[in-house]
């Protein structure tokens, strides 16, 4: 499927709810609100043959916590990125895991790294942080390595 073609169809189906742009013939970026994520994801799974869940990126942005789902399409160079920004004090994003199990680990990792809550995740436990890890989020911008090492009782220099 062509990138511009997909952008046209997405804009037709969702109008202003999804800000969709084709950066090149193989990269499509779509920004949307968290409440539209599941509907748009379901629509893409139905409309685009060969679509699979690639991975997600989490980022601490000025306006909130960004969660970007990267969805490559088998057999084509196309990668669709769904960008969701959850406002900061209590960031919440609906989980894709009930729909596609491949999202399970990466959502748990993102919850560990930036503290996003994935609503509806079947296994909402820590993946990369052990139980004794202090309740800080290493990918948040206010995370300070030196202070963290001091907190857990490490020598700052060896």
């Amino acid at each position: 499927m062509d990138a511009n073609d997909l952008v046209g169809r997405m804009t037709e189906a969702y109008g202003d709810d999804v800000a969709c742009v084709a950066r090149s013939h193989k990269r499509v970026y779509a920004s949307l609100a968290p409440e539209h994520l599941l509907a748009v994801f379901d629509w893409l799974m139905e409309e685009v043959p060969g679509l699979r869940f690639g991975t997600s990126t989490c980022m601490d942005l000025r306006e909130g916590i960004g969660v970007f789902h990267h969805l490559p399409v088998n057999g084509t160079p196309l990668v669709i990125t769904l960008k969701v920004v959850a406002p900061k004090p209590d960031p919440r994003v609906p989980s894709l895991t009930p729909r596609v199990p491949a999202a399970g680990w990466i959502e748990r990792e993102m919850a560990d790294m930036v503290g996003v809550v994935f609503e509806g995740h079947p296994e909402p436990y820590r993946l990369v942080k052990a139980e004794s890890f202090p309740d800080t989020f290493p990918l948040r911008r206010d995370f300070d390595v030196a202070r963290f090492k001091e907190d857990i009782g490490e020598q700052p220099d060896f």
Partner: peptide, 29 residues
């Protein structure tokens, strides 16, 4: 298998965010 890197730059000489997804991540899951 397929390796994915997502790079975001803010115009400085260091990346703002680099996400690395190695193929084994999904294969092991």
């Amino acid at each position: 298998g397929e390796d994915i890197h997502y790079l975001r730059s803010n115009g400085t000489n260091m990346p703002e965010r680099l996400k690395v997804r190695a193929p084994s991540y999904t294969n092991i899951a």
